[in-house]
Design a protein around this nucleic acid. Structure first.
Ligand SMILES: [Zn+2]
Ligand SMILES: [Zn+2]
Ligand SMILES: [Zn+2]
Ligand SMILES: [Zn+2]
Lengths: 130, 130
DNA sequence: TAACACTGTGTAATAATATAACATATTTAA
DNA sequence: TTAAATATGTTATATTATTACACAGTGTTA
């Protein structure tokens, strides 16, 4: 089992907001939404986001500078992420594919590099947008 | 064969600079370096970068907001990128692994999404930094 | 040749994303 | 109970990227 983290007030407020959205949220849109809860500055948002990413509660979609909640309760998931992104409607889905995970986990380059994390983003058109 | 693109003056200047570096360069560092060649504004840099990315001459390292030259002459490579990134020295290497490419190319999710591109970034410690 | 689409340029202004620096408070652990 | 680690609130600033506008070159086509 993963160590259960106790979240602080700001972290809870921001995680709640992200979990209520099924799509990625951007930092300044989060800031706008949590102003009514007393969070006033970008740094307060980014500090919470960084912590939540670190403990795996949310993931950053690097190509979009946006943050999405992780629905997967498994350990280590923060260190092994796969997303599909529709380039038309911007719908983002986290992918958990056992076979793909295995391939990625077992990947070795020929440079002797030691990996502890990866992030994979697939781009295309979702069913609705094809 | 891929259609041979004719690059414009600005695009050539910026591609030259990126190709001379074996590591990713950031847009504003590129801007600083090409000012002596008459490129004065961020937008001139970003326009060239976007074009060069589009035609596959360079790739964007999404997690670093930086741009690296592609050494691979194969078609389609702009649409299927894999990088290893050292979190200590920030060394970035483009990976071309046939087996991995196959797995990624053949990946199908269960949502009927049609993919046309992917980007994979591995993070860890390189040989020197372990 | 003229009209048009398409691509690129140059410039200024601004938007969007993220961090530094500082003072203080709270929690955790030796 | 001191010290270390983590979090907070605030201001300012750094970094990354785009909008808007005027115009120039190139190729197509009517
Ligand atoms: Zn997840
Ligand atoms: Zn879509
Ligand atoms: Zn490449
Ligand atoms: Zn290294």
């Amino acid at each position: 089992m993963q160590k259960q983290e106790t979240l602080t007030k700001n972290q809870k407020i921001i995680l709640d907001l992200i979990e209520k959205s099924d799509q990625p949220l951007k930092a300044y849109s989060i800031l706008f939404d949590v102003k009514k809860k007393g969070i006033n500055a970008p740094l307060q948002v980014y500090r919470a986001l960084n912590k939540l990413v670190k403990i795996g509660k949310i993931h950053k979609i690097e190509s979009r500078n946006a943050f999405i909640a992780c629905k997967n309760s498994k350990c280590q998931i923060a260190k092994a992420t796969v997303f599909s992104i529709c380039e038309s409607c911007e719908d983002v889905t986290e992918i958990h594919d056992h076979k793909l995970s295995e391939h990625l986990r077992d990947f070795k380059d020929n440079k002797g590099m030691k990996y502890n994390k990866y992030n994979l983003e697939f781009f295309g058109l979702c069913k609705k947008c094809i």
